[in-house]
């Protein structure tokens, strides 16, 4: 404010390019439906009529090329982990990952004797937001998505970074 106050007409917006890009990218993240196990049912319930996911801009896409966010919902097994990596690499930048549920976070209830369970999906892909719960309530998933939106907004892709 200060110098710029009361100087412009309507329909003129002043903001930094970073903030504009952050606003555009964060408010319509299309998610890649990667439902694996029980958490997939809660993800479907979140996208259904009561806890509507489309009101915060998320639409389910089945192809990794069209998606921004990959919600890993459910247990990742060794057999599946190679495919998770492949699909993550097929997504176009900028891409984000939400690890939903305690199985995707750290192996979940199968951490102790599960020889075939991957102890957390962050062993194969970089994760941005962890949503705990077994399974997390739809409200918890929405909170995780809102946190992701805050994170995307706080990114500054255009600013020259030192080193």
């Amino acid at each position: 404010m200060g110098i710029l106050e009361n100087k412009f007409q309507d329909n003129v917006v002043v903001a930094s390019m970073d903030k504009l890009l952050g606003w555009a990218r964060s408010t319509s993240p299309w998610f890649f439906q990667f439902g694996l196990a029980c958490c997939a049912i809660e993800m479907m319930a979140t996208a259904a009529s009561r806890y509507d996911l489309m009101r915060i801009g998320m639409i389910p896409r089945s192809s990794p090329r069209q998606a921004d966010v990959m919600i890993v919902a459910g247990t990742v097994t060794m057999k599946m982990s190679l495919r998770v990596k492949k699909l993550y690499e097929q997504m176009a930048n900028p891409k984000y990952v939400i690890a939903m549920g305690s199985c995707a976070t750290s192996g979940g209830p199968y951490w102790q004797y599960g020889y075939h369970v991957l102890k957390g999906v962050d062993l194969v892909v970089p994760v941005d937001v962890y949503v705990p719960g077994c399974p997390p309530r739809p409200e918890a998933l929405i909170e995780g998505l809102l946190k992701l939106q805050e994170k995307i907004q706080a990114e500054r892709p255009l600013t020259k970074k030192i080193a």
């Binding site: 060794m78 750290s106 951490w111 991957l118 102890k119 957390g120 062993l123």
Partner: peptide, 17 residues
């Protein structure tokens, strides 16, 4: 008498991180 293998395609398998 099953012993879990150490890694699978480069990913760590055993139980404790």
């Amino acid at each position: 008498d099953y012993e879990t293998q150490e890694t699978y395609h480069g990913i760590i398998v055993p139980k404790v991180k």
